[in-house]
Computed example of a mutant assay.
Amino acid sequence: MRRAWMLPVLLVLCGSALSTRQIVQGHPGTAAAVLLGFVLLAALNSPLIFPRSVSAPEAQRLSALDGRPIVYWRPGCQYCLRLRLRLGRRAHRLHWVNIWRDPAGAEAVRAANDGNETVPTVFVAGNPHTNPAPGWVRDQLR
């Protein structure tokens, strides 16, 4: 859990330090813009932007029932973020598994990627697809 929040917290701390420096130099407008930019970056790299994660066994059980794909992801991954943002509202129709929180999810990703934890890895009907195009994933939801 701590590892998922390290980058967002670091971004907010760096933004705060740079903003403080701008205020000391007499540039409060620049300070506000810098802090806002860092807070937005922190939000984009936090687990908050992703739908609620479930465990790998739970995702597999739900996927078997409803046929929806499973996305294995981790916070801070730019490719996971790209997939999440390009899916828009449709992202809630997938089952998301955070591999940093779920050892079984991490193991499923390693098994699909020759021992590497390459994410996003999307399982559709039990078949893994590593870093698929967002358009392809959208097509799988139809």
Rank of each mutant, 00 (worst) to 15 (best):
V9D: 06
L62P: 03
Q60I: 09
W100F: 15
V122C: 03
P47L: 09
L62W: 02
E107K: 10
W100T: 09
L81P: 03
A125T: 10
R21Q: 15
P103K: 07
P75H: 10
T30N: 13
Q22T: 00
Y79A: 13
D114H: 14
G26S: 07
C14L: 15
V12E: 02
W73P: 06
P28N: 05
P103R: 13
G115T: 01
V71H: 00
Q25K: 12
V34R: 00
N131S: 11
A112E: 06
T30A: 12
L85S: 02
V124Q: 12
A64Q: 14
R61Q: 09
L94V: 01
G37F: 11
A106N: 06
R138P: 00
L83I: 04
Y72L: 09
F38G: 03
A31K: 01
E117K: 13
L40R: 10
T121C: 14
A32F: 11
V109I: 08
V71T: 03
D102E: 07
P128R: 02
A31I: 03
Q25S: 12
T30P: 08
P132E: 04
L7E: 06
R61M: 09
T118C: 10
T30R: 11
A42M: 08
R86W: 10
T20F: 11
G115Q: 00
R61W: 07
P57S: 08
T30I: 13
R86H: 11
L87E: 02
F50G: 08
H129R: 07
H129C: 05
V12F: 06
E107T: 09
L81H: 11
P128Q: 05
S55I: 05
V9P: 08
A106P: 04
A4G: 06
L13I: 13
H95E: 02
V122S: 01
R142F: 05
V54A: 01
L11R: 04
C14V: 15
R2M: 11
L65P: 04
C80H: 03
L10R: 11
